[in-house]
Amino acid sequence: MRRAVLATTGISALVIALLSLKPHHLPAIAGSPPARPSSSPHTSTSTPPGASTGTGTFTGDPIDTQYGTVQVAATLSQGKITAVKVLQAPDSNGRDQQLAAYALPRLTQEALGAQSAHIDAVSGASYTSQGYIQSLQSALDQAHA
């Protein structure tokens, strides 16, 4: 009986230790370039007073993810995001299509609300979300260049 209590306690402590080591960040996307540091002048989506603002449609870079390529085009009017169109999304199977149909409208809604690429990923579609965010940021960088 004593051994069972000691074994159960030891296993419980091991499980707790392993759970505390679980990473709490989004996985990196295979084949994508590393994120730019936040001090880069092109990562800011706000335009300082007196600077030119982007107007037009800007196509973001295609971002290769583990499940396929994600690419968006952002339409801006006087520096404000008015629309985001998904040009490419993972669709090689039914599950990819289902995730894209669920995640992409939510990501677009968040981007329009935030007026930037600093948005939360959609749970269950983290690779697609990260590809969307990176492609949107590259489109915004072009608009503000």
Score class of each variant (00 low, 15 high):
Ala4Phe: 12
Ala4Gly: 00
Leu6His: 12
Thr8Val: 12
Thr9Trp: 04
Gly10Asn: 02
Ile11Gly: 00
Ile11Val: 15
Ser12Val: 11
Ala13Asn: 04
Leu14Arg: 04
Ile16Cys: 13
Leu26Val: 11
Pro27Gln: 01
Ile29Asp: 00
Ala30Gly: 11
Ala30Ser: 14
Ser32Asp: 14
Pro33Gly: 11
Arg36Gln: 13
Ser39Thr: 12
Pro41Leu: 10
His42Val: 15
Thr45Lys: 02
Ser46Cys: 00
Pro48Ile: 10
Pro49Leu: 10
Ala51Ile: 01
Ala51Phe: 08
Ser52Asp: 13
Thr53Met: 02
Thr53Pro: 01
Thr55Asp: 09
Phe58Thr: 04
Phe58Ala: 09
Thr59Leu: 03
Thr59Met: 01
Asp61Phe: 00
Asp61Pro: 00
Asp61Ser: 06
Ile63Leu: 11
Ile63Ala: 11
Ile63Lys: 12
Ile63Glu: 14
Ile63Tyr: 12
Gln66Leu: 15
Gly68Trp: 07
Thr69Phe: 04
Thr69Trp: 05
Gln71Val: 08
Gln71Lys: 00
Val72Gln: 00
Val72Thr: 03
Thr75Leu: 05
Ser77Arg: 13
Ser77Asp: 15
Gln78Thr: 05
Ile81Cys: 09
Ile81Leu: 11
Lys85Arg: 14
Val86Ala: 11
Gln88Asn: 04
Gln88Leu: 01
Ala89Lys: 08
Pro90Asn: 13
Pro90Thr: 14
Asn93Pro: 05
Gly94Phe: 05
Asp96Val: 03
Gln97Lys: 15
Leu99Asn: 09
Leu99Ala: 03
Leu99Tyr: 12
Ala100Ile: 02
Ala100His: 06
Ala101Gly: 08
Tyr102Asp: 05
Ala103Phe: 06
Leu104His: 02
Pro105Lys: 08
Leu107Ile: 02
Leu107Arg: 03
Thr108Met: 07
Gln109Ile: 01
Gln109Thr: 15
Gly113Trp: 05
Ala114Asp: 01
Ser116Ala: 13
Ile119Tyr: 06
Val122Cys: 04
Ser123Gln: 02
Ser123Phe: 03
Gly124Pro: 02
Ser126Trp: 00
Ser126Asp: 04
Tyr127Trp: 09
Tyr127Leu: 03
Tyr127Ala: 09
Thr128Leu: 12
Tyr132Phe: 15
Ile133Gly: 03
Ile133Phe: 06
Gln134Ser: 09
Gln134Met: 11
Ser135Lys: 02
Ser135Arg: 04
Gln137Gly: 05
Ser138Arg: 00
Ala139Met: 04
Asp141Ser: 15
Ala143Cys: 06
Ala145Ile: 08
Ala145Val: 08
